[in-house]
């Protein structure tokens, strides 16, 4: 973390996309400076050159000039479309996570960030990540909307209750960086901050091994058994509930027509309000688990269901 108190003008650049974002940012700055100089310059020149010299001045009328109108409609339009295209390309780069990477889980709540590592270690308001490896962060909120914002990585994503969102980054520089909540979330919004600690992969492994942990899928399996889910959701589709084998990421046929991709949000809904979207061919007999599992336990359960890959082919489809 940069703690010098002097005048700072440029944010740290510590992720794989930061440079790309800055390139477009500086291009926009250049465009802006050009037009500001043009408009200010013209105004300054005109008001000086054509200042009123006598109270009886009566300048000739100029109605307009079609060519000029087309010029200053066309040039901004073309420029705007160019910037749009560049920005859109960048947006997909910043938002679309790569296939491979470490899966982190983050739960936001008033007013803290709860982080879980792929191997199960938990932290609050701190997040240790390895340098040079893509990190996917699946997030949800226990209460209001928060926003996961790491300025040095140029990454931001609103964390919305009731659904899962994914952000990703690949840190490129070892160090400590701010983590902010950037969506106003109540009284201590400005204290819902933390730090991201980027370590060399070896240091990260060492850091992990210094802490006991249970991988989320293992914790989820225990919870799954404890809640008695397995009585109905049997592996061989003979139970009263559908088998969960390979269900993650697949398309599920619903009762009354329609299909839905079994992603985190759907699985979460099916635990909390099981009747909302029933799987075709099954009765709506599952009770709700609202109040028994909080967001973190839900993440464990989902991690477990996610680990239940179908034994042979066909491979579960990614959404």
């Amino acid at each position: 973390m940069d703690t010098e108190t002097g005048l700072q003008l440029f944010p740290e650049r510590a992720s794989s996309v930061a440079g790309d974002v800055d390139a477009l940012f500086y291009f926009l700055v250049a465009v802006s400076v050009f037009f500001v100089l043009l408009i200010f310059g013209l105004i300054a020149y005109f008001v000086w050159r054509y200042r009123r010299r006598s109270p009886s001045d009566a300048p000739a009328a100029i109605h307009g000039h079609l060519g000029l109108e087309l010029l200053w409609t066309g040039v901004p339009l073309v420029l705007a479309m160019f910037i749009f295209g560049w920005g859109a390309k960048l947006y997909f780069e910043v938002f679309r996570p790569p296939k491979e990477g470490l899966d982190f889980y983050v739960v936001g709540k008033q007013w803290m960030w709860k982080v879980q590592h792929p191997t199960g270690q938990r932290e609050i308001n701190e997040m240790h990540v390895p340098r040079g490896i893509p990190v996917k962060v699946t997030m949800t909120s226990e209460d209001v909307i928060h926003s996961f914002f790491v300025p040095a990585f140029r990454v931001k994503r609103d964390v919305v209750p009731g659904r899962f969102v994914t952000a990703w980054f690949m840190a490129t520089k070892v160090g400590e960086y701010h983590l902010f909540c950037s969506q106003y979330c109540g009284t201590a919004h400005s204290q819902m901050t933390g730090k991201i600690v980027v370590l060399e992969p070896a240091d990260y492994s060492a850091w992990l091994s210094g802490r006991s942990a249970e991988p989320p899928a293992v914790a989820g399996k225990k919870l799954f058994d404890k809640l008695g889910c397995a009585t109905c959701h049997q592996q061989d589709a003979s139970g009263r509930g559908p088998s969960l084998l390979g269900v993650f990421g697949s398309k599920v046929q619903l009762q009354g027509g329609g299909k839905v991709v079994a992603d985190e949000t759907y699985l979460r809904e099916s635990v909390l309000s099981p009747q909302a979207k029933l799987v075709a061919g099954y009765e709506g007999i599952m009770p709700t688990f609202t109040g028994q599992v909080d967001e973190e336990k839900l993440l464990d359960l989902i991690a477990y269901i996610r680990s239940l890959a179908l034994p042979p082919a066909p491979a579960p489809r990614q959404p």
Partner: peptide
């Protein structure tokens, strides 16, 4: 007005630009 609106409008482009808005949104 013309000067400040020009600056306000141009910085609006930053926010309309998807990839850049991700960074400066809510700041």
């Amino acid at each position: 007005f013309i000067g400040l609106f020009t600056i306000g409008g141009l910085t609006g482009l930053f926010l309309a630009t998807l990839g850049v808005d991700v960074h400066v949104h809510d700041t």
